[in-house]
């Protein structure tokens, strides 16, 4: 495993843990989109079905379980915790995230590495991950509030995407059979969406004003 991949995994892990820790500590999830968090939970649940069938390494298995556990915990906090759920911006978090799921599923049925249940689910999770940030973007646009979504969370997600792209480039040039078009393209789309987000985040930070995304 190369350093880019490892750093990508770590920043991804920290982004989820920072969010979970924050919610746990301050008992508030203001500014966080439950829709996006639910999509991430679905992403992990459908991608890691191979926990039961393939063993790759102890590292992979443990990381998968931690990603699953932490993302499900965030959803649990936001839905069920007495105090946390009160701080949830329900009226603002209106993105119809269910409408993302069906197109991703259809796309996965059409474009996959192999037409098996596991591969279709794997492709579905990649497509869904690429667009899962959208409800969060809409919520930010509505509330125009970046105070509650810490810079750390944004920074870590961006670092995760960047390191994974470096990892793919590195692996492409150092390994013989390493070609994963589906992963790469959906990863690029995801990074572009984040890039859009960063642009406005840093722009507003620089001008010391509240975040304002174009309609």
């Amino acid at each position: 495993m190369n350093m880019f991949r490892f750093l990508g995994d770590m920043t991804h892990l920290f982004s989820v843990l920072v969010l979970l820790l924050k919610i746990h500590t301050i008992k508030s999830c203001a500014g966080i989109s439950l829709k996006t968090q639910e999509l991430y939970a679905i992403v992990f649940a459908t991608r890691y079905l191979d926990l039961f069938t393939d063993y790759i390494s102890l590292y992979n298995t443990v990381m998968k379980l931690v990603y699953l556990g932490s993302s499900l915990s965030i959803v649990w906090y936001m839905r069920r915790h007495k105090l946390v759920r009160r701080s949830y911006d329900k009226d603002q978090d209106t993105f119809r995230h269910h409408f993302l799921i069906l197109p991703c599923l259809i796309l996965a049925l059409l474009i996959n590495e192999k037409f098996t249940f596991m591969e279709v689910m794997w492709a579905f999770s990649l497509y869904l991950e690429a667009v899962a940030i959208l409800p969060q973007l809409v919520l930010l646009q509505r509330t125009r509030n970046i105070d509650n979504l810490t810079g750390q969370y944004v920074f870590l997600l961006g670092a995760y995407r960047s390191f994974y792209i470096l990892n793919w480039i590195y692996r492409y040039f150092t390994e013989v059979h390493y070609v994963h078009w589906i992963t790469w393209i959906s990863g690029l789309v995801q990074t572009l969406l984040y890039g859009d987000f960063f642009y406005y985040y840093f722009h507003s930070w620089k001008n010391n004003e509240k975040l304002q995304l174009p309609a």
Partner: peptide, 10 residues
């Protein structure tokens, strides 16, 4: 399983 075709990334 065929290692080359396995998804070894997260």
């Amino acid at each position: 399983p065929n290692v080359e075709n396995m998804h070894d990334e997260l």
